[in-house]
């Protein structure tokens, strides 16, 4: 987006289809409930499986924070990274895995399956996702120049409308 060196990234329906296929397979094979992809800046990219009934924007931002905080912890104890994290609850658990340092795969599961199975299946999924995203991130920034000029004008009007006393 800016010459400041902070490129936006984008992906289209074809990418999305590929990614959802990987996640569908993961859910099917692992018997987990739901999989979410979150980017490292805290934005939700995609959700597959049972639609979660929590606030997914908050969930995504906390996931990214969780992972980042753990990266820092890893480096403090001399590890390069913790490539995955596991949070165990009484009935619901979640497993988080790094995808190419840009995304985090979160899988929610319960007693219908086991940590061992989920972990193995996630490993496969991560490698497939890495392949899929290599393409997305390898793309020239210029190719994704999508927004019509009117977008800016309309967004500005909307900003004025929304942010007023």
């Amino acid at each position: 987006m800016t010459p400041g060196g902070a490129p936006s990234w984008s992906f289209g329906p074809a990418d999305s289809k590929k990614i959802e296929e990987v996640l569908d397979t993961l859910l099917y094979e692992s018997n987990a409930r739901c999989a979410l992809l979150v980017d490292r800046t805290g934005q939700l990219v995609v959700t597959v499986g049972e639609q979660p009934d929590f606030d997914s924007a908050a969930f995504a931002s906390l996931t990214a924070a969780d992972f980042s905080a753990n990266d820092q912890l890893a480096s403090l104890i001399g590890e390069e990274e913790f490539s995955s994290l596991f949070h165990q609850g009484r009935s619901e658990s979640m497993y988080l895995a790094d995808v190419g340092k840009r995304l985090i795969l979160v899988v929610l599961f319960n007693k219908q399956t086991t940590l061992g199975l989920v972990r193995i299946k996630i490993r496969n999924a991560v490698s497939d996702l890495n392949k899929a995203f290599e393409e997305v991130f390898g793309r020239e920034r210029g190719e994704a120049r999508p927004l019509e000029r009117d977008f800016v004008n309309e967004a500005e009007d909307e900003i004025d409308r929304l942010f007023r006393e």
């Binding site: 987006m1 902070a6 490129p7 936006s8 990234w9 984008s10 992906f11 289209g12 329906p13 990418d15 999305s16 289809k17 980017d39 800046t41 805290g42 934005q43 990219v45 995609v46 994704a144 999508p146 927004l147």
Partner: peptide, 15 residues
């Protein structure tokens, strides 16, 4: 690094 998602047609900006 705003994310533009053409599949779900979403734009998220971080301030």
């Amino acid at each position: 690094m705003s994310m533009i998602n053409y599949a779900s047609r979403e734009i998220n900006c971080k301030i």
